[in-house]
């Protein structure tokens, strides 16, 4: 039990009229991806997969294994071409704490040839060369942490 101030930091805040929480809550979620594991296997092989409903033909990215239109789960995995056109972008300058090690980064939305749009980072040396409508290519890559991801590149 801590009812009264007990450390330097807590005492400092207490003098400003603030009670500094003594309890820590760490939030790290465990997100089931079992039904879409083929997507992650694809990344390792350099492929980007979407899912297509075998009944109505709707293409889904991010991939999902249920078609809400047909209310069924009769879906196929389909590799999509990475060729895309840049629809819009931003350069994130104030980054979340958990992304600070990357510095500024470009987030882009590209319209793929298959008709789906993907949001991802865009790798480009000179930010001033980014133009709406330019051709970009979505590629898979192994990141610094050893995991696989996908990223747009300007050819």
């Amino acid at each position: 039990m801590h009812m009264l101030p007990y450390t330097q930091e807590v005492i400092r805040l207490y003098k400003e009229g603030i009670f500094f929480d003594a309890r820590n809550l760490e939030l790290k979620y465990q997100m089931p991806v079992k039904r879409i594991e083929k997507f992650f296997e694809g990344l390792e092989k350099g492929k980007i997969f979407a899912t297509r409903c075998n009944n109505c033909g709707e293409l889904y990215f991010p991939p999902q294994m249920d078609c809400p239109v047909c209310r069924n789960n009769d879906m196929s995995w389909e590799e999509v071409s990475g060729n895309a056109k840049l629809e819009t972008y931003t350069i994130i300058e104030t980054t979340p704490t958990s992304f600070q090690k990357y510095g500024s980064y470009v987030i882009a939305i590209g319209l793929l040839e298959s008709g789906v749009r993907v949001l991802s980072w865009l790798r480009i040396d000179d930010f001033t060369k980014i133009k709406i409508g330019m051709n970009i290519v979505l590629k898979t890559e192994k990141n610094d942490d050893g995991g696989y991801t996908y990223i747009f590149e300007a050819p």
């Binding site: 972008y89 931003t90 994130i92 104030t94 980054t95 979340p96 992304f99 980064y105 987030i107 939305i109």
Partner: peptide, 11 residues
Amino acid sequence: FGLTFPGYYAL
């Protein structure tokens, strides 16, 4: 991808 809230509107 670390999309921030200002990032959403910046797009």
